[in-house]
Design a binder for these strands. Structure first.
Lengths: 244, 244
DNA sequence: CAGTGGTCTAGACCACACA
DNA sequence: GTGTGGTCTAGACCACTGC
């Protein structure tokens, strides 16, 4: 007896028996169990659609996600293969500092240290591909969790990309949140590293000189135009966490 | 004059004028330019389909990706809204150490330091939710880029989840690559932090005691069953990079 | 040239959650 | 109840690329 094609998807929940999730799970299982080892050619979408008794679109969606996760490689005409080098991808969520601090239950406090308008130093010009003598706003500030320094932010903003930054003193709002509100941006690059605190940074973060600090750098563009570069330093107790 | 609906998508490339990518770009533009500010209700898929002159499926795909990227929030019946807290998400690619080293042009070399079978120490049992007195394999090893130590790996493998780890000496193959080949896994958690090298680690990595090190920790599960915990320490020159 | 994936369409049914 | 998103279908055209 044949029922509506979606009958059991509607009634059974945890182990799905239908739909692109089920297809994806089954394909993944064949790959993980080495039925289809690394480099193995996977049947075409049309063949799989016939095997699973679903439309090609359903197979396509399952394979699309697998390709997106780096599990398989797909090329027109060549077909789909199990990826040979299992590059794991993790989604990294990067919230605003304030949100991150408040999520721990602590009170957020912002403190401006300095704000200057100057011509971009050479290293910054190189990093942001700025014209020589470009004007930038340099902001240094601290983010506190309760009474404890949590993050020191050293930020440079390209005046050409954000002219009205000249009107903002950053006394009550931190540069990150101001930028989020003021400037759309399209591309960003993140870098993470370990460093050690020099005397200045140590004093700002309330640690000892030479202590390890976790450093996150962010560069942001609006199209081709560089917007901002920020270097954020955390006490070494900070951990950045991500799940797959 | 009306042409085939896909006519210009086929001929114009860089700025697409049709298709879900164009829809996505247009929606994104309205959000970034504050035409639709944070929290604003976005028209329903049906309405947007009419406005753009495409099928609802096309709108759905565009909105699906925006939701996936955290740009919008979607709920049945309630509709779609521009996300209020702009949580940025970055995709972090985590390749095998060997691949990472070879990508720099350096020669990869692996060196086993120790391999022991023992009962899990308490901190490990807590982290992996192991039964008391669970047997684990503890592997310590170094990954070299040329003659330079690149990464120190301190790994614990749950024997119950991977029984045949008892037969592997890890003399020629490193534990990471062996595991990738031997065990499927479903969930992983990553953590990144800055630390400082104790005397042992400093000697292994060829740095000075107290120097900052970049630490990446990975915990892996197969379903509910914990598989492995690894702590990887890099010289402080290491940078982990990611783009949006 | 021809096979494969990429995408679109028009229509449909349903789950869900709000009213 | 009812509107919205989530998903599936069957069919179609096309881009890409290996042969």
């Amino acid at each position: 007896m044949t029922l509506s094609p979606n009958f059991d998807r509607a009634t059974v929940n945890p182990p799905e028996r239908t739909g692109y999730r089920a297809v994806k799970a089954e394909l993944l299982s064949r790959i993980r169990s080495r039925v289809w080892p690394a480099g193995h050619a996977i049947p075409s979408e049309v063949d799989l659609a016939a095997e699973f008794g679903v439309a090609r679109g359903t197979i396509n969606r399952a394979m699309l996600e697998l390709a997106d996760e780096g599990v398989i490689d797909r090329r027109r005409k060549a077909g789909s293969r199990v990826a040979t080098s299992p590059v794991r991808q993790a989604k990294l969520e990067i919230p605003l500092v304030r949100i991150e601090i408040e999520a721990t239950g602590a009170t957020y406090r912002y403190e401006l240290i300095s704000r200057d308008v100057l011509t971009a130093p050479e290293w910054l010009g190189a990093r942001l591909s700025l014209a020589t003598k470009s004007k930038v706003v340099h902001v240094r500030c601290l983010h506190f969790a309760g009474s404890m320094p949590f993050q020191f932010e050293d930020r440079w903003i390209n005046v050409e990309a954000v002219p009205n930054v000249l009107n903002e003193r950053f006394i009550t709002i931190n540069p990150n949140e101001w930028l989020v509100d003021a400037v759309p941006f399209t591309n960003a690059e993140f870098a993470f590293a370990a460093s050690s605190a020099d005397q200045d940074l140590a004093q700002l973060l309330g640690v000892s000189s030479g202590d390890p600090v976790f450093v996150a750098e962010r560069t942001t563009w609006l199209g081709e135009k560089p917007v901002t570069f920020a270097r954020m330093s955390f006490r070494s107790s900070y951990r950045m966490v991500s799940r797959i």
